[in-house]
Simulated assay, not measured.
Amino acid sequence: MAPRRLSDLPEGEVLGHLFPLFAGTKGAAPVLLGPGDDAAVLAAPSGGVVLTTDSMVRGRDWLDEWSSGHEVGRKVVAQNVADVAAMGAVPTGLLVALAADPHTELEWVLDLAAGIAAAAQDAGAPVLGGDLSSAEEGTVVVAITATGDLGGRPPVRRDGARPGDLVAVRGHLGRSGGGLQLLLAGRGRTHLDGEAGPGERAVDELCRVHRTAGRPPWEEGPRAADAGATSMIDVSDGLVRDLGRVARASGLRIELSGSALAQQAAGPLTEALGAADALRQVLSGGEEHSLAATFAPGAVPQGWQVLGECVAGEPAVLVDGQVPEVTGWDHFAG
C-alpha cells in the first residue's frame, strides 16, 4: 500500500489524527481550554509567564537519513523546555507549529507527534495547540513555543553572576556535538541501525544524544533557583559561547578548570573520539541542553559539577588561564 501523504487528507482529518496523540499530556498548571478552539487557555498560578520558542528545519537541524520523526519531536521539545528551566521555571505547556511539504508522509508526521507527546509528558508540559501549514517542496519546519511558571521565584537571568561565584553544570557536555562529528564523518549510527554491539556503544550513545537531545535536566532549573543561583543558561551553542554570554551580561571573567573539563570528556566521548576531540566537544559542542549556572560558594546543589569560578576582569572565558581555540556554534556563521 502506498504511504499516505498530507496532501491525501483534508486538514481537519490530519488534525483528527494528531489531537489524540497529544490528549494524554498533563502538566502542573491547569489547562482551562485545550486544543480545538482559536486559542488555548492556561492558568498562570504565580502571575508571571515564562515564554520561549525554538524551531527545527529539515536539512539544517536534522536529516531524515539520520533521525526518525519521533527523535525530531523529542529534540524540539528538549530545546524549549531546557530554556524554560534555565530561567528557574517549571514548564507548563507547549504550542506546536508544523509547516510541511504536502507530499510529506502522514506516518512521519504522526511519528513526530508521538515524539513530541512523549517528551511533553515527561516534562509535564501538555500540548495546548498550535498550527499546521503547507510549505514548499521538500520543506519541513517544526516550531514549538513553551510556557513556564516561576512559582513565585524571580527569574534567574544571565546578568547576575558575581566575582567569587562558582560555575557549575548539571548534565553532560559535548555528547551531542560528538555525535554530530561522528555522523558527519560517516562513522555514526542512525535511527535505522539495529542494536549496538559491545564495540559500538560509545558511538551509539553520542549519536543518540545528538538525534534526540537525550533528556535535559529540566527539573534542576527550579532547584538551582531555589538554591540561590545567581545566573543560569541552557548550553545550546557550546559551553564557551554560552558562558561567554553570561560573562558579558554580568561584566566579569569566567575561569574554567581543565581538570574539571577533562572529567566531562572522559567515558563515551574519549572512547569514541579520542582525548583531544573529546575536550574540544566539551568546550564547543552545541545542542547539549544541559544547564550551566553560577552559585555563591557553599550553595552549589548536590549533583552539579563545579567547573570553575567567576573573577573580576574583562568579560571572557578562559581555561587554565588561556583563551580556548574553540568558540561554539553560530547559526549563521557556523
Rank of each mutant, 00 (worst) to 15 (best):
A292H: 06
A316C: 04
G199V: 06
R175P: 08
A23L: 07
Q121F: 00
G179Q: 08
V319Y: 02
L183K: 02
E200V: 08
A146Q: 03
G34W: 00
L42Y: 00
L95T: 10
A333C: 03
P198V: 04
V300S: 11
L184C: 15
V81T: 06
G178I: 09
G308A: 09
F22A: 08
A100R: 01
R208C: 10
G321P: 13
F22T: 09
A125K: 08
A196P: 11
A39K: 06
H70L: 12
D237P: 02
A249L: 06
E220I: 04
A146N: 04
G36K: 11
M56F: 08
S46D: 15
G199F: 01
R158Q: 08
D330P: 00
G160H: 14
E287S: 11
A82Q: 11
D101C: 15
K26G: 05
M87R: 13
H289V: 03
N80H: 03
S68W: 01
L166S: 08
L273S: 01
W329E: 10
T104S: 03
D131N: 15
G171H: 09
H17E: 13
E11V: 07
L110Y: 07
L95S: 10
T104R: 00
P315Y: 01
G47H: 12
G138W: 01
G179S: 13
A272C: 10
E271C: 13
N80I: 08
V142C: 13
T139I: 11
G36M: 04
I254C: 09
A333T: 12
G48I: 07
L239A: 14
E309T: 01
A146T: 08
S68L: 02
E137D: 14
V235R: 11
P35N: 05
A44H: 09
E255I: 00
F295R: 09
G48V: 13
A117W: 00
D242W: 02
A293L: 05
I116L: 07
A278M: 10
P30V: 01
G274C: 07
G199A: 10
G179V: 15
E271Q: 13
A312K: 14
L33M: 07
G24R: 11
L283P: 07
V77S: 01
R170F: 14
M87W: 09
D83I: 00
T147K: 00
E205R: 15
P198N: 03
T139W: 01
D277Y: 00
H70G: 09
A225D: 08
I233F: 07
G69K: 02
A196H: 10
P163M: 12
Q281N: 14
H103A: 14
L279C: 07
G164F: 09
A202Y: 02
P91A: 04
M56Y: 10
H70K: 09
G186N: 14
S134K: 05
A89T: 04
V235K: 05
D64P: 12
W304C: 04
D101R: 02
G197M: 11
D111E: 13
V41I: 06
L32E: 00
G313N: 03
H289W: 10
S250H: 06
L128M: 06
L180K: 05
P268W: 05
A249H: 13
G267T: 13
V326K: 05
T327D: 01
G313S: 03
G267C: 06
A202S: 10
S68E: 01
V240L: 12
P324K: 06
Q281G: 08
G251R: 15
G59I: 04
